[in-house]
Simulated scan of single mutants.
Amino acid sequence: MHVTGDREVCVGAGQCVFAAPDVFDQDEDEGLVLVLQEYPGEARRETVEEAADTCPSGAVRIG
């Protein structure tokens, strides 16, 4: 599983961080998504999918 966060689309809602704080963070300047683990592994799939599903802008994607 490959995770991406599109900073051009991100609105800084932080839902990804709430769902999977070990995979996502927000930068201090603009509050935009930062992907901490591009390949978090299958054990994290459920929380990463929750992060993608709850992202209001669709910035979080799973490949």
Results as ranks from 00 to 15, higher is better:
residue 50 E to K: 06
residue 12 G to W: 07
residue 49 E to P: 13
residue 30 E to Y: 12
residue 42 E to V: 15
residue 60 V to H: 02
residue 61 R to Y: 11
residue 23 V to W: 13
residue 17 V to P: 13
residue 52 A to W: 02
residue 16 C to M: 03
residue 45 R to W: 06
residue 15 Q to D: 13
residue 56 P to Y: 06
residue 21 P to G: 05
residue 35 V to C: 05
residue 19 A to K: 04
residue 38 E to W: 12
residue 39 Y to A: 12
residue 51 A to H: 07
residue 51 A to Q: 06
residue 32 L to C: 04
residue 20 A to H: 01
residue 20 A to W: 07
residue 9 V to T: 05
residue 38 E to D: 05
residue 19 A to Y: 12
residue 5 G to P: 06
residue 29 D to G: 13
residue 33 V to Q: 05
residue 25 D to S: 01
residue 41 G to I: 05
residue 32 L to Y: 09
residue 45 R to Y: 08
residue 48 V to F: 04
residue 5 G to D: 05
residue 30 E to P: 10
residue 45 R to Q: 14
residue 34 L to C: 15
residue 28 E to R: 10
residue 26 Q to R: 02
residue 49 E to V: 01
residue 3 V to L: 08
residue 12 G to M: 02
residue 44 R to G: 11
residue 26 Q to E: 06
residue 7 R to E: 11
residue 58 G to M: 03
residue 27 D to P: 04
residue 2 H to Q: 15
residue 37 Q to W: 09
residue 35 V to H: 02
residue 40 P to I: 08
residue 25 D to P: 05
residue 38 E to A: 15
residue 62 I to A: 01
residue 63 G to M: 02
residue 54 T to M: 15
residue 32 L to H: 10
residue 46 E to N: 01
residue 49 E to A: 14
residue 7 R to L: 03
residue 51 A to E: 08
residue 45 R to H: 03
residue 15 Q to S: 12
residue 13 A to Q: 08
residue 8 E to D: 13
residue 46 E to C: 08
residue 53 D to A: 07
residue 13 A to G: 01
residue 61 R to A: 10
residue 7 R to Q: 10
residue 5 G to Y: 07
residue 4 T to L: 05
residue 11 V to A: 11
residue 16 C to T: 06
residue 31 G to Y: 03
residue 36 L to P: 13
residue 33 V to E: 03
residue 47 T to N: 13
residue 21 P to D: 09
residue 1 M to A: 12
residue 58 G to Q: 01
residue 55 C to Q: 04
residue 40 P to E: 11
residue 57 S to H: 09
residue 35 V to P: 00
residue 44 R to L: 04
residue 28 E to T: 12
residue 62 I to Y: 09
residue 58 G to P: 11
residue 42 E to I: 15
residue 38 E to T: 10
residue 16 C to Y: 12
residue 1 M to E: 08
residue 47 T to I: 10
residue 50 E to P: 14
residue 14 G to W: 08
residue 1 M to I: 12
residue 42 E to G: 15
residue 62 I to P: 14
residue 16 C to R: 01
residue 46 E to T: 11
residue 34 L to S: 14
residue 48 V to K: 06
residue 51 A to K: 00
residue 40 P to T: 01
residue 43 A to E: 12
residue 24 F to S: 00
residue 38 E to I: 01
residue 46 E to I: 14
residue 48 V to C: 02
residue 12 G to I: 09
residue 17 V to N: 13
residue 19 A to L: 01
residue 47 T to C: 09
residue 48 V to S: 02
residue 26 Q to P: 04
residue 59 A to H: 00
residue 11 V to R: 00
residue 32 L to N: 04
residue 47 T to F: 11
residue 56 P to N: 11
residue 9 V to W: 07
residue 46 E to M: 12
residue 4 T to V: 13
residue 11 V to L: 10
residue 63 G to S: 04
residue 42 E to H: 14
residue 11 V to N: 14
residue 61 R to M: 09
residue 3 V to C: 00
residue 43 A to R: 12
residue 36 L to I: 02
residue 20 A to G: 08
residue 51 A to D: 09
residue 44 R to P: 11
residue 34 L to G: 09
residue 59 A to W: 03
residue 12 G to N: 03
residue 12 G to K: 02
residue 26 Q to T: 14
residue 30 E to R: 15
residue 26 Q to D: 06
residue 29 D to H: 11
residue 38 E to G: 13
residue 2 H to M: 10
residue 5 G to I: 01
residue 36 L to K: 00
residue 2 H to T: 14
residue 30 E to W: 15
residue 40 P to A: 05
residue 31 G to K: 06
residue 35 V to Y: 04
residue 40 P to H: 05
residue 50 E to F: 08
residue 63 G to C: 07
